[in-house]
C-alpha cells in the first residue's frame, strides 16, 4: 500500500499510451507524449526517495547528511529540459504537416498522399 505513488505514475503512463493509440489528431498525440514524459519523471524521482530523508542540500538546519538519492534528480533535471526541446520541435513539425496536407488526421493525410501519388 505504500507503493501508491508507483501506481499513480503507472496509471498516468497508461493514460498517455491510451491517448497516443486512440486519438486521431496529431496534436493530441503530442500532448499524450508529454503526459508520458511527466509520468516517467515522477516514477524516476520516486525511485530515489528514502523514508525520512532530506533534500540533498547542505545547510545549517541539516548538519548530518540524511539525504535522499540525488542521482535520479540530476537525471530528471536533464530529461525535463530535453522534453521541452522535443515539444517545440514536434509542434513546428505539426505546423509544417498541416501546411502541406491541410489536415492533422493521419488517415486523411494517408488518403491525400495516395491521391497525389
Amino acid at each position: 500500500m505504500s507503493n501508491i505513488i508507483y501506481y499513480v505514475s503507472f496509471i498516468i503512463l497508461g493514460i498517455g499510451i491510451y491517448g497516443i493509440v486512440s486519438q486521431k489528431n496529431l496534436f493530441k498525440q503530442l500532448i499524450s507524449l508529454s503526459i508520458i514524459d511527466t509520468a516517467v519523471n515522477i516514477f524516476i524521482v520516486a525511485l530515489g526517495y528514502v523514508e525520512w530523508g532530506e533534500a540533498p542540500i547542505y545547510s545549517t538546519i541539516t548538519p548530518v547528511a540524511n539525504f535522499v538519492d540525488p542521482l535520479p534528480q540530476a537525471l530528471v533535471l536533464t530529461a525535463i529540459v530535453i522534453g521541452v526541446g522535443i515539444l517545440a520541435l514536434g509542434s513546428v513539425l505539426l505546423v509544417h504537416i498541416n501546411e502541406k496536407y491541410g489536415s492533422l488526421d493521419p488517415d486523411e493525410i494517408r488518403d491525400t498522399r495516395e491521391v497525389v501519388e
Binding site: A55, P56, I80, V81
Partner: peptide, 15 residues
C-alpha cells in the same frame, strides 16, 4: 514532497 526541490523549480518554470 519527494524532496526534489531542484526538479520542482525546473518543472515549474519549464513544464
Amino acid at each position: 514532497v519527494l524532496k526534489a526541490p531542484d526538479v520542482a523549480i525546473t518543472e515549474a518554470a519549464v513544464g
